[in-house]
Design a protein around this nucleic acid. Sequence first.
DNA 1: AATGAATGAGGATTCATTCAT
DNA 2: AATGAATGAATCCTCATTCAT
Lengths: 240, 240, 240, 240
Amino acid sequence: MAGALSAAPARPAVRAARERRVEEILEAAREVFCRKGYEGAAVAEIAARLGVVEGTVYKYFDSKRALLLQVLERWYEQMFGDYSQHLAGVRGTRQRLRLLVWHHLRSIRQAPLLCRLMFREVRSEPDYRGSGLHAMNRRHTQLLVDVLREGVAAGEFRADLPLPLLRDMIYGGIEHHAWNFICGRGDLDIDAIADQVVAVVCQGIAARPKAADLEAQARRLAAIADRMERRLTAASGKNA
Amino acid sequence: MAGALSAAPARPAVRAARERRVEEILEAAREVFCRKGYEGAAVAEIAARLGVVEGTVYKYFDSKRALLLQVLERWYEQMFGDYSQHLAGVRGTRQRLRLLVWHHLRSIRQAPLLCRLMFREVRSEPDYRGSGLHAMNRRHTQLLVDVLREGVAAGEFRADLPLPLLRDMIYGGIEHHAWNFICGRGDLDIDAIADQVVAVVCQGIAARPKAADLEAQARRLAAIADRMERRLTAASGKNA
Amino acid sequence: MAGALSAAPARPAVRAARERRVEEILEAAREVFCRKGYEGAAVAEIAARLGVVEGTVYKYFDSKRALLLQVLERWYEQMFGDYSQHLAGVRGTRQRLRLLVWHHLRSIRQAPLLCRLMFREVRSEPDYRGSGLHAMNRRHTQLLVDVLREGVAAGEFRADLPLPLLRDMIYGGIEHHAWNFICGRGDLDIDAIADQVVAVVCQGIAARPKAADLEAQARRLAAIADRMERRLTAASGKNA
Amino acid sequence: MAGALSAAPARPAVRAARERRVEEILEAAREVFCRKGYEGAAVAEIAARLGVVEGTVYKYFDSKRALLLQVLERWYEQMFGDYSQHLAGVRGTRQRLRLLVWHHLRSIRQAPLLCRLMFREVRSEPDYRGSGLHAMNRRHTQLLVDVLREGVAAGEFRADLPLPLLRDMIYGGIEHHAWNFICGRGDLDIDAIADQVVAVVCQGIAARPKAADLEAQARRLAAIADRMERRLTAASGKNA
DNA sequence: AATGAATGAGGATTCATTCAT
DNA sequence: AATGAATGAATCCTCATTCAT
């Protein structure tokens, strides 16, 4: 596995100590990477934050880049656990859709700097393709595609939807919309945005009578027809 | 303004020569930045491409970063001219919307590496906010917002649209969707994608009777009512 | 003696285990040093080859350099045993000379990388002088000097030979000649080279009548003289 | 050409200054490399010796290794000039042979540390093969082979000599013999060694009547024959 | 207008070695 | 007997930038 160096500690105490160190380093790396970006971060600074020397960091991680990828993988793993748990408990396609959108927004609000790292330093690099991070990302975004497919199967969504494009419009739209927040400006009202995203996606933007309106109108017409019919019947009765 | 150094050459010939040099440098910088990214590019390499020394580049540009921003501004200016021309000649809100989407896709297809520079190296840096590039970007994305507003004003779109979110879903969705292409993998069918984006945006994804169907139904009801009315009138006439 | 750390284990089983470990380490070190050179080899890599940690290696050897010297001493010891055995069974100065030359060539063919280590990393360092390795090397090269001296004593070689120079021309010549092979290129025909070396050394390069020719010529002259003498005697007899 | 970075200075003054700098760096590098060896030398130390920073060295040389190779090439070039000049003025194969041997010894005596560098750091590395240094070395050693061939052509040397082996025995023998001196111990009597080398090579080591002795012997026999002949003739005259 | 020399700071990575457990 | 964590020093190379000519 790319990332942490292999270790086969015999005793559990040793293993635990090692894992604790790994955590400490990842924690320090996360902070420094978030604050300075990948290029701007110095391994020495990460090490200094733990009170160790650079060499120590390299005992646990192959390279600075491996460290970055591990930091992001940890984060992704946590997010991912959350997602699956919550999603299982929600019924209704639209509600499930909203949950995914809301969760994504919450991830961004919780760790905007990690998002920035992900977008800037990782996703556009050639080594991203094929990395564990990429696999996790695909599993993650696939959840949305699955929910959309459920909606199609249930007859709630049109059958001819371009699912990958929809996925990209939702996640890409969220990221674009959150960009200022990610870059440290402003706030992020994740509930409102989640509602808006779902509304735009589900209803589109065309101004047309809503189904409810049309039904009301239809009911009115039917009532008129009824009245007419009754009048007609009454008239026929007089004649007879 | 950040960018080219101020110069007030006495003779116009001198001025022309200077501008030619600026163009040459920008051209070389564009190539090197695209190939290596910002951090990976060396000013020396850009200079060498012209057969000049590093110092010469600094006679025309304040810094490496200013050079990058200028490169992207040039590119944006060209794109922008195109946009305005084309947009003026298209009628119909939906057609205008599609034109903007299509143009954005075409920009990406024409210069994916510049797009990558823009996303990676510029948009997430603090100095982007407030730069000329940012202003141009806002003018550019504002076109889409304007078209959407026109649609609202014309009654074609709902009045309660969250316009900034829509803008982000469209541009963010396009970028997400084109990311593989931007990173050098695969192809980009800009016509098909433009159609799909516009369709998703305008109609949403909910499976429901289309407005046309509902209107046809309403017309049928009206016809029934007509017939009844006529029968009623006829019956009244007999009675009289 | 530089090299293995002193240890006085109480029980012989412990001692045996320790010696086994020492052998394992030397074996691993030999491989890594040969493949990477001294500077290029990492103690960690040597340790990893045994599945132990770096610290363990330092339990058995003072330093990386001591390890190198020990590796080469082991190799030398093996070679040396061979030499003495074979040499004892060969008669004739020239044959004994050829044996030493051939043996040296065979050592090179068997372990070119160890030779390279010896030449590159050890022989030119100040700590070589006075090391056990140096002593062994001197004993080894002394064999050749001894054989030459035997030849002188037996009247087969000239008495005024510069023995140390001859020794260096033979060993140095062999090493030079084998250098490409030592560096991994080509092959080494040790029988042919041994023949040529001995021939050059024994006969020199001057084109001159060989001793055999000269003796034949002398015999011819003597025969003539004989015949003349007989004729002279016969003539004298007649006169008497 | 590997080594010094390309430069196309317009003005000769600039060119001269650059070349002076190159010389200074090569000079400093030579000293440090000789004193510390290649691995032991730090580029920073070389730079400090000139009062410049490391970066400056890298403006003139691609890498530390390129610097080493250049140092040795300069040295080789100087030696090479000497060789050709001197050799042209010497007649007689044996004298020419001795000149080459003597020159090689003198090179070693003049710059033993550079020799050590050459042997230790360069000749055994894979990048030596095919380098300019290698080409120069081959031209150099070829001179010896040429002289030997001349001797063969003139009938002074045997026709069946293994020339490459001879070359290696001479140069390799010299190096071996000079090794202590190269490593800083003892002195080097280049005249005596040159004589001995040439003597060993030309005459070999076998104890046999020298050609002169044999000729003297032959002359004695001839004299005896003469006397006999005369006595024979006198006797014949008496008889008549 | 261009040169080209020089700077100076930085930064990732490697490794022999030590020591407490 | 072995571990494994930690050290700390060292080093090559890069580069944006400046400035005198």
